[in-house]
Design a protein around this nucleic acid. Structure first.
Lengths: 153, 153
DNA sequence: CTACTTGCAAATGCTTTGCAGGAGA
DNA sequence: TCTCCTGCAAAGCATTTGCAAGTAG
């Protein structure tokens, strides 16, 4: 569906990168972790713990949580704030590209969107000014659009 | 501190508005709820359940949760996504003004910021276009800047 | 071999609820 | 007086953790 590249090979370099990131913090890229990263690649949008456990029945919930925690501290994934109370995760922007989200307030679904470079730049610099006025040191930003997704309409 | 208006009177109309909203859903504006709304007004930024319970020692935790739920469904307050795992709340934008947040990734603090109308408008229309492309019906948006606040720097 | 991983089950901790008495309109 | 509100204590539930066995390097 949303694959612009030949599945296997295009992901090989990414897996190698993940492997390196984990090694940096003395962690191993085990099969369970690979399965999760592969799921992120296939999904193409933030997924919840339940999504992961459903897609990988052999993976215990506690391991899913632990893997996510470890992958997060290794800089491989990041937690996404959704409109419902469930945590969702996606590959860190260091491994993908800067983007924002459409949050469905009806079903909780999260969809990726990529703003134009022009708008992105304008917003970014404006936000940095506002942050500076508060003596706040900005590191990144996130923009979410709340509404109803195509499925729920 | 951050009060541009004479405390009591300027808030009177807002309390009246809150009262009306609650009445609309057959709920009463009791002292506990008033205390919470008053706290929001004084704080001027999103507050957590713990903040509320600390500021209002006589208020049981369970009541705080219930009040927040009720005020939320009455359209008086809304939940704010922070950078830590704690829920925070603020007065709904119908009662205040559209604004965004600075989220401290170190202490979890949330600071309000108001973007210029020009940028706001540009971002808004651009986001609506992106949403339309996904057949997504946008209702509102939120913009957060993640970083380190003045206190934590 | 040594250190990190995993499963399972038990524990945590925030949040929600059932109930009975209290209060607003 | 009727309905909604409150406190307290008892759940609920997503997430975390202790421990012992398994496995990557």
């Amino acid at each position: 569906m949303s694959g612009d590249e030949p599945a296997g090979d295009s992901h090989a370099s990414l897996h190698a990168l993940v492997w390196a990131r984990l090694r940096r913090v003395d962690q191993r890229y085990t099969s369970g972790r690979q399965a999760i990263v592969e799921l992120f690649l296939q999904a193409g949008h933030p997924v919840s713990i339940s999504d992961i456990v459903e897609a990988l029945p052999a993976l215990p919930r506690s391991s899913a949580y632990r893997h996510l925690t470890d992958l997060q501290s290794a800089g491989v994934v990041r937690r996404v704030a959704a409109s419902d109370e469930f945590s969702r995760f996606e590959l860190d922007e260091n491994l993908t590209a800067h983007h924002h989200h459409l949050l469905c307030t009806s079903c909780g679904r999260v969809i990726d969107i990529t703003p134009s470079a022009v708008v992105e730049r304008a917003v970014s610099s404006h936000l940095n000014e506002l942050a500076a006025a508060e003596d706040f040191e900005p590191h990144s930003h996130r923009i979410d659009v709340l509404g109803i997704c195509a499925v729920c309409r």
